[in-house]
């Protein structure tokens, strides 16, 4: 059996996904990117392969994407995460839409047309405000495990308004709010709100909206908040964190002429 692999080496996590020639997902895996992207990519790839009956002899094509795409020595080709996210998203939502991807280090807004062609894209400026890194930093300051943010935010009575653009200044602002007696739940909802605000500043959100990325995958309440703020339904792929990796695998399939 031929297979096609997409490896998305992000700033925070590395995702691998394996598909067959019919574009069916055979396996997938995620691990921390850490300091050695090559090792992280190999690990994710091995884990994705394990248990799905894929053997190396049948390997067809590996395409890497993401921040560390050039560090994946075993990849046959590379493509940017912007193209791969558009591709992966269109696979599940094959109509014109706007994709919002909230990644570990950057956020992207990508628009695709009815044929899946990318019309435009925008990434956040080099600042990490509005990304997963922002949530990680604030969770760390609040001494809350990152995985518990969603559960806290959903219990909030109100959303604390945070005014700063800057992650570091927001952390200071949060300390002030704690001194003022603001509930942690309300603060967490406030930081979700801050991430949403940064995304809304990037580009008008036209037509159908799809959201992807690790933040979306692990925080369903974040998606609900986003949806309420824009007054629109938000579609989320079945494997939101793997959207870029899936797109990479689909490109691998295309490049191999499968």
């Amino acid at each position: 059996m031929k297979y096609f692999a997409g490896i998305d080496v992000g700033a925070s996590t590395t995702k691998a996904i394996i598909i067959n020639g019919k574009k069916e997902i055979l396996g997938y895996s995620v691990n921390d990117s850490g300091a050695d992207f090559e090792v992280a990519a190999e690990q994710a790839f091995e884990d994705a392969k394990s248990g799905v009956g894929v053997v190396d002899e049948n390997k067809s094509f590996v395409l890497s994407t993401g921040y560390g795409r050039r560090n994946v020595q075993f990849a046959d080709s590379t493509k940017t995460e912007i193209s791969c996210h558009a591709k992966g998203s269109f696979q599940e939502f094959p109509h014109a839409h706007t994709l919002i991807d909230i990644g570990g280090q950057d956020s992207k807004i990508i628009k695709v047309d009815d044929s899946g062609k990318r019309i435009s894209f925008k990434m956040n400026r080099k600042c990490a405000a509005g990304t997963g890194a922002f949530l990680e930093e604030i969770a760390n300051r609040l001494k809350i495990p990152i995985g518990k943010l969603d559960g806290l935010a959903v219990k909030a009575k109100e959303e604390t308004q945070l005014g700063s653009y800057c992650t570091v200044f927001t952390a200071t602002e949060i300390l002030t709010k704690i001194r003022e007696g603001v509930e942690v739940e309300d603060l967490v909802k406030g930081i979700f709100g801050a991430v949403i605000k940064r995304a809304l500043e990037m580009d008008p959100l036209d037509g159908n909206i799809v959201m992807s990325g690790g933040v979306v995958a692990h925080n369903p309440f974040f998606v609900q908040m986003f949806s309420e703020k824009i007054g629109k339904e938000i579609f989320v792929p079945s494997l939101p964190q793997y959207t870029g990796a899936l797109g990479a695998a689909l490109y691998a399939l295309e490049e191999e002429g499968g």
């Binding site: 921040y67 193209s83 990318r118 990434m123």
Partner: peptide, 22 residues
């Protein structure tokens, strides 16, 4: 200090990929 190399290059590369897909 105002230039983030990786971000700038990813943006440029993605832009060219967009032209290629035209």
């Amino acid at each position: 200090r105002c230039y983030s190399e990786e971000q700038a290059k990813t943006n440029i590369e993605a832009f060219i990929e967009q032209l290629e897909a035209k």
